[in-house]
Design a protein around this nucleic acid. Sequence first.
DNA 1: TATGAATGAGCATTCATTCAT
DNA 2: AATGAATGAATGCTCATTCAT
Lengths: 190, 190, 190, 190
Amino acid sequence: MPKIVDHDERRATIAAAAAEAIADEGIEQATLKSIAARAGVTTGAVTHYFSDKDDVVLAALLHADEAMRSRLDAALDLGRSPVDALLDALPNDETSRRDWLVWRTFSDAAIRSEFLRSQHRRSQSQWLDTATQALAGGDGVTPDDARLDAELVVAVVDAIGDAAAIDPGAWPIERQRSLLEHCMRRVHGD
Amino acid sequence: MPKIVDHDERRATIAAAAAEAIADEGIEQATLKSIAARAGVTTGAVTHYFSDKDDVVLAALLHADEAMRSRLDAALDLGRSPVDALLDALPNDETSRRDWLVWRTFSDAAIRSEFLRSQHRRSQSQWLDTATQALAGGDGVTPDDARLDAELVVAVVDAIGDAAAIDPGAWPIERQRSLLEHCMRRVHGD
Amino acid sequence: MPKIVDHDERRATIAAAAAEAIADEGIEQATLKSIAARAGVTTGAVTHYFSDKDDVVLAALLHADEAMRSRLDAALDLGRSPVDALLDALPNDETSRRDWLVWRTFSDAAIRSEFLRSQHRRSQSQWLDTATQALAGGDGVTPDDARLDAELVVAVVDAIGDAAAIDPGAWPIERQRSLLEHCMRRVHGD
Amino acid sequence: MPKIVDHDERRATIAAAAAEAIADEGIEQATLKSIAARAGVTTGAVTHYFSDKDDVVLAALLHADEAMRSRLDAALDLGRSPVDALLDALPNDETSRRDWLVWRTFSDAAIRSEFLRSQHRRSQSQWLDTATQALAGGDGVTPDDARLDAELVVAVVDAIGDAAAIDPGAWPIERQRSLLEHCMRRVHGD
DNA sequence: TATGAATGAGCATTCATTCAT
DNA sequence: AATGAATGAATGCTCATTCAT
């Protein structure tokens, strides 16, 4: 019998290490060696679980995407207000910032890959669906406007997340909250 | 007698070629050789006018940033409405999309460089100032709210520009206009 | 109770798989993994039966050498004419071509290994002995000439086998037969 | 002005070094590093003049092929007898043996490459043409038989060259001459 | 007996950089 | 001012080998 390992768990560990490396060093500077070192294995182990670097990177991107979505869903499930839930998902600590940085990388990679673009689009529309649901229930709002309101909120969240991930110093949580709440006020016509 | 060349013009040509290369191939894949080829010179010429690759890249980023700002200013000077002016600046053709892609690269680079981060921040606040001015004049709006409205619009424009640069197919100009106009409606309380 | 396996049979199976792999992919491209896959086992099993890759390769070379010789001996035992027997041994189907390709590899390996060179030499002289016997019986031929005739025939067979193994399209069986028969005619003075 | 070098001469030097390396170490063991070292340059220089390893190898193969042909042609031009000329071309010293070893490698490579196979075939037919011409002039020999005689001689020369390249110790020049002269005697019906 | 996880050395290749001309 | 030859470090990747199970 071979050494017993959980193949999927192993892949997940390496994917998480890769996400870290990508966030810290950028997608090109994140070498197999640095990814392996973060995961505490050798480069050979990485190529044992992934066919090539693209494969590792893809796993890292999906890993971070999934993590971001989970964070938002968890917050909503806990019954927090949309604003609070979104603030939970925005880059406010090491982990969430890391995921936003990886998400940026995902977007960049999507520019030059048909396949990643479709993944990216799918992920985007899931965000939009969640937002549309979370914002539902306003009176006297046409479905078209409801959709546009959701797009508006998603756009603002994206912009805040991007800006805060790039320059955390310029976007403390209070600034994030203040802009997000203003957005909600404008959307609700207050 | 040495050959007479306009040093600055030469640098600008190469910077523009580098911006093109970065947008087309990504910052890492854009090699000195490919940049030189686009500019119609040899790698030696590039290193003659720039100290190293970072220097070329910086020039390319500033070049594209400048181009985007000019486009917006020009549109406003022509007396176009804020919405039309912003749509002019958003990625609607090869050139504007290219500049947005370079802007993304700029943002990425700012993540890991103190110097670029300060440049990036300055560029962002110029956008915000322009937006604040362009949107000014609403009655019964407190200065704080005016500032937040401007931030909101800038955020939405950033998000649209980003999304459209990444996935132009998903963001035809009509969609850009429709979301932007909705944003304005909400801001003006219609 | 340990699983019961026939050690020698197991080695033979793997050696045959290795011969196949070497003929198909070349000696360097034939990896332990690809050899194991052809044999329907894991790489661990291969290293269990052989000390290292060189050992597997050696077994494959001897395996193919043995197969070629058997094919010639069998044909002669069936009472076929020397020409027909040799044509049987030449590369005329998948199997015989494969063995010739492995034989080439054997020769290559012999260039850089004292040990393989001696094996190779022994194998060559067995061919020569067989040929000398098969061609024996001409009248008025001195023993020296008989030996040279045999060398001549072996040389021609080697050359045909080589050429046909390398470029089967250029060496259909008719061409092989025609050259071989011409050789015999010249040897017999017709 | 750049450093002035003769591009073609540079390529030829590296190709010769590669031929040496291939003969000494085999095609796979001949690394770019070892080739570069033999040529007295760095690996970067090799890739500067050749697009990749395949390209270097091809140049080496053609280089050796050309050298062998030249050697035969030169001997014939000097008015030597066919036998003497062929013996000149056969592996009798370091250089000629090296070329025969590279020729073997060429043949091997031709097995798996359509392109090399066509090159190989062309080279083979040039040998045959030369042989046909050199042997021409026998009385009472039909053209068909003349062609077959040439094929026979070429086959024997190939076989001797191959054997002598692989195992020089077993094929001193006297043995090469003796078999080749016997071949000629049989062809001429003595 | 047999597995396949893990290693790490070695490869071809790419590329920013230097520099003789 | 401009060239492009040459360098050499670094990368992704392959693979024989080892070994815990």
